[in-house]
Amino acid sequence: MPPDAPLLAAQNLAKHYKVRGGGVLRAVDGVDLTVRAGDTHALVGESGCGKTTLGRLILRLVEPTTGSIRFRGEDLLALKPEAMRRMRRHLSVIFQDPYGSLDPRMTVAEIVGEPLRIFGQGTRAERRARVEALLAQVGLTPAHATRHPHEFSGGQRQRIGIARALALEPDLVVCDEPVSALDVSIQAQIINLLQDLQQSHGLTYLFVAHDLSVVRHIADRVSVMYLGRVVEEAPKAALFAAPRHPYTRALLAAVPQPKPGAPPPVPLAGEVPSPLNPPSGCRFRTRCPVAVARCAEDDPALRELAAGHRVACHLAEA
């Protein structure tokens, strides 16, 4: 792997589901995604835009319909099942639901130690020491190791999930809305924990989220998704300072401002079209405030308008 190659590079990734009655649901429809080592790359968009599916595609928990994924210089989709399984030690995940993602019949020690056991790492005693170290890193104590998940609060459970995600010292952690199921007061703790761990472990995050204030806090780069496509991708600062795509602008405008006297957010008109039957041309044109005739005909490709700032809109200008 060349030194400056990205850790993860997905190209033209798509997942189409055949639907009863003959339709095709385009959950993810041709996405390019490049994540550099050490970055936190956020995927944002409304619910149903395909961001979670994209995360699952990267993890190969869902098999893509088309596309390629390069991870650590290897073509993930070409790996045979056993080779893919071994690759999973470098690829980790934190789930959204801290209740469903922990086996209720296991103790915390079994949950956190499961990846170690799966990969046959260490002796029983070494694994136990490792589990205790992991628990300490996420702010739990060894006394918690013998408890079951139902004895913990949502935030504590998410810490257990994070400890498990770090057990094998992965390179990339797909964080699938890791804080959106938590109380606001707990969210900040978990976000800070994730940031601390990123520094101490040299982690790369693919951070799926719909909460822009969380993204603004944690992300280095942001990809904005709409109806299975990436419509804008930029460094965080550029994206929040000068969004180019009308959808990104609408998304940012919808964030409530805590300032007194700030203008109330202007919601977008209409609903997200069905991914079963996306609009012709630009996917966003049906709700776009600046759409022109061309948008119904040409499907805009991502264009690089400034260094590292790519937009899929005919009207966006450098």
Binding site: L61, R85, F95, E114, I118
Partner: peptide, 14 residues
């Protein structure tokens, strides 16, 4: 369909 099964798959479980 439980997420902990997905998790075990993601962490390399056979």
């Amino acid at each position: 369909e439980m997420e902990y099964v997905q998790a075990a798959l993601a962490f390399g479980g056979r």
